[in-house]
Structures are given as C-alpha cells and as structure tokens.
Design a protein around this nucleic acid. Sequence first.
DNA 1: TGGGCGATTGTCT
DNA 2: GACAATCGCCCAA
Length: 202
Amino acid sequence: MPLDRSLLLPPSFEVAPLLLGSILTVDSPEGTVALRITEVEAYHGSDDPGSHAYRGKTNRNAVMFGEPGHVYTYFTYGMHTCANVVCGPEGQASGCLLRAGEIIEGLELARSRRDTSRSDADLARGPARLTVAAGITLADGGADLATSRIRLELGGGVPEVATGPRTGVSGPGGTEQFPWRFWIPGDPTVSPYKAHAPKRRS
DNA sequence: TGGGCGATTGTCT
DNA sequence: GACAATCGCCCAA
C-alpha cells in the first residue's frame, strides 16, 4: 500500500492525529525495524516561533519547505538526531516531529542500537531515542517516505487521541496557545516529559 | 523518585 | 559567539 501523499497536504496540526498509530518501517543492511507512532508534535512554518522555519528558509530546514511525505532530519544539542514528517503543500514548511513510538518489528536490532539495560518501552521514547532505535540518521534527511528505505504507512486512526499545548508558543493571532502535541493516552511508550522546563546557563 | 545540570557540535546572527 | 524541537547521569530527599 503506497503512501497517499495527498493525506499529508493539510497543515501539520491536522495531519498529526492521523500519524498516531501509523507504522514507520526502516530497512537497513542489518535488518528491518518497524514502529508504531505513539506521540508527535506539530510545527507550522513561519507562523510558529518554535519552528526551525520561523526565520525563513535556510540551508538546514530547506526540506521542510519542500514536498510533503519526505523526512526532515536535524541534528541538535551536539549529539542528537530528530526526525520529522513534512506536511502541507510545498512552501508552507509544516511538519510533525516524531516524539515516540512502540517497536513492533526488529526488537532485537533496536535493542542492540541502544542500551540493552533499558526497558523495551524506553527504546523509542523521546525523539532522539526514536531515531537511534529505528536507525534513522542525518543522511536520511530529504528521504521520500513512499520510495526510500524509510516508509510510512498511514494507519486507520486510533480510538483516542490526547492533545496538549506546547508551552511558550504563540499562534498566528497573538499569544494564544495551540494544542499541537498529540499522543495516544495511556500508552507506555509515550514520553512523560514535563512541559518544556527552561534551563539556565551559568 | 524526581529535579538539576553537563555534554557536544551544527547552524545562524 | 550563542544557543538549540534532548538525553542520561548524579545527587538529594
């Protein structure tokens, strides 16, 4: 079942609930890891101060401005890779950050890529952990989710979707906050992260 | 059990 | 030169 790219044309905050429960499959020479997406976060282009695209198109975020259904990867904090699904029409720079997932295939391989002392629910709990467990790297940036070694199969939805606001983010209209974080309530693989704790530097 | 902080480098101002 | 869509360790309670 090929990816229906038209389903990704709406802005990310509308696509996000659809991504929950969807299956992401990643092939590699070592084997295949598939995971069920359990938590995502939406970012919406130049309207969203929390988005990498807020200050316009740059070399780094160019993929997000492109065709939907591709993978936008970025490197952060000097050691972490995170992956997004590009949504919206070209030029809009809308995307969904994959925050957590449940490994449903290739559990052994996913364990070997991470610390085996961790519980299985921890393997892909958190955006940077998810990319490590799945085997997604920076080099996968721009990959087509319909034809590359990384494929997305949109699920039939989930019975219940929980949403929450991303703190410190104002919408197009002003200081209003939007519930742009989506997860499957009660799922053990969802990251229980506290609301964006600001950290101070010495 | 939970909060706080250091690590580490690409990217943009 | 600052800081980032984070993670995991260490320490206190």
